[in-house]
Design a protein around this nucleic acid. Sequence first.
DNA 1: ACCTGAACACCGTTCAAGT
DNA 2: ACCTGAACACCGTTCAAGT
Lengths: 191, 191
Amino acid sequence: MGGTMATNVKEEVLEAARRAAQSRGYAGLNFRELASEVGIKGASIHYHFRTKADLGAAVARRYWETSDATLQEMWERYPDPKEWLRHYPSTFRQSLENGNRICLCSFMSAEHDDLPEPVKAEIQVFAEVNIKWLTKAVSASTGMSEPESERRARSIFAAVSGAQLMARSRADISVFDSLIEEYCHSGLLPG
Amino acid sequence: MGGTMATNVKEEVLEAARRAAQSRGYAGLNFRELASEVGIKGASIHYHFRTKADLGAAVARRYWETSDATLQEMWERYPDPKEWLRHYPSTFRQSLENGNRICLCSFMSAEHDDLPEPVKAEIQVFAEVNIKWLTKAVSASTGMSEPESERRARSIFAAVSGAQLMARSRADISVFDSLIEEYCHSGLLPG
DNA sequence: ACCTGAACACCGTTCAAGT
DNA sequence: ACCTGAACACCGTTCAAGT
């Protein structure tokens, strides 16, 4: 009878919204469709999330929190810093595996001009969390200076995002793998 | 008098739609708004473009045709193949300069799942045209083998797209410049 | 040939009402 | 506490009808 066992409608909406937003963006989110997935009516979502902007911001916040946790786990799982960078692209690969979805941050970066401020803010945090993690990983595995590591971290983040986007446009995950391989080959990513 | 002097409503719609799509995507295109920019009513656009899908496909086709012409000009303007690659990112930079817009292909790649087939097809051609051009530029300036050059060309296209997307999310063109610089520094782009 | 009014289906949102 | 039907103002899209 613990609270954790109960189905939580709010959580289900949040999860359905995340999946939808990774497929069709913030503009593609709609209350009536999300509601029907969860088994309630469109109007009922407003009980849990006051506005669409609130839902979008909640989804984006949860998204970077999850990413943060996943990256921290990689911290602990692999002893060698070089492993960190080698495994980083797999977090983006998983979105593609999961219904050819892309990173929420990438989709919402494209939608930038039509996004409510609070949503933009949470999306920014996702990028910052990833870049901070990458900076440490680059620094630890190459011995680059801190500003150099950050510049490299940013370029890795942008390049991996671009690879994911291109793979989605072909609906072909092997495109992603080839691009990452070439990033390694060219020197952007380590060996 | 000459047909080239007459204002051409269809052309104006096409141009307004391109600008809108680079800001807000295919989903963000709307007939009433485009029409009011051109001075007609929303419904009138359907005389020139049967459906939104037809308009989208026409915009995307025109987009790769223009890109193709621009790239061919670079062919002729610069004698040294190394200049070709150095100038390639500037075509993406211009979209950012022009109202923080992004490449139509990038936005529509994100929107992949909600795109009519003919639009997807034209967008694919844009990527192919760019990759073919880049392949020649890489091959001519590095002496890499043909398959190696194409792999590198694809990774440059993906990475530059990602850099543009990230710069848009910050609404800061200097982010783009820093990323390109770091691509050069890392070896993805030449020196 | 070129354009429009009016209708349609759908959206986010609100709110009084239900349990 | 949690959900709903109905209504509202608005949107993109369509099509028969205008000139």
